[in-house]
């Protein structure tokens, strides 16, 4: 079972991701905001991290930078409303592996998660 950390503040999106990823046979942990995520990241190791960029307390960017500093090999997928090129470029420059924009297709997301998990 792969451990996935989902960092997201929209209750509806959380439920859907949790439902879908658990159905795919993953061990899913949820962080509802950046601060909670930071705490989880300090004490745990994950096989994959799925994060939003606009989060309460701590931004997605700060989380990404923290993950890249401490566990650079953990793959990161960003799930964000932003479609602006510069925001996406910034995320890739910080080392994220994939960028999915909202509205998202849960099936496609599940595929991309699987692909990254196999690669690593």
């Amino acid at each position: 079972m792969k451990k996935i950390l989902v960092i997201e503040d929209n209750a509806m999106v959380i439920k859907s991701l949790e439902f879908k990823l658990k159905k795919d046979g993953n061990d899913v942990t949820i962080a509802h905001d950046g601060r909670e995520a930071m705490k989880l990241l300090k004490d745990n190791k994950y096989d994959l991290i799925l994060t939003d960029l606009m989060l309460p307390f701590v931004t997605g960017n700060e989380l990404i930078s923290y993950i890249k500093k401490n566990t650079p090999d953990t793959p990161i997928i960003v799930l964000s409303t932003s479609t602006q090129e510069n925001i996406i470029m910034d995320a890739f420059n910080m080392g994220v592996d994939d960028f999915i924009t909202k509205p998202f297709s849960p099936n496609e997301l599940s595929l991309r998660v699987k692909r990254l998990l196999i690669k690593n």
Partner: peptide, 15 residues
């Protein structure tokens, strides 16, 4: 409202 809210965030088959 809730279906709209779901729909806003989802695309593809789910939408």
């Amino acid at each position: 409202k809730e279906i709209l809210h779901f729909h806003e965030n989802l695309k593809g088959e789910s939408a």
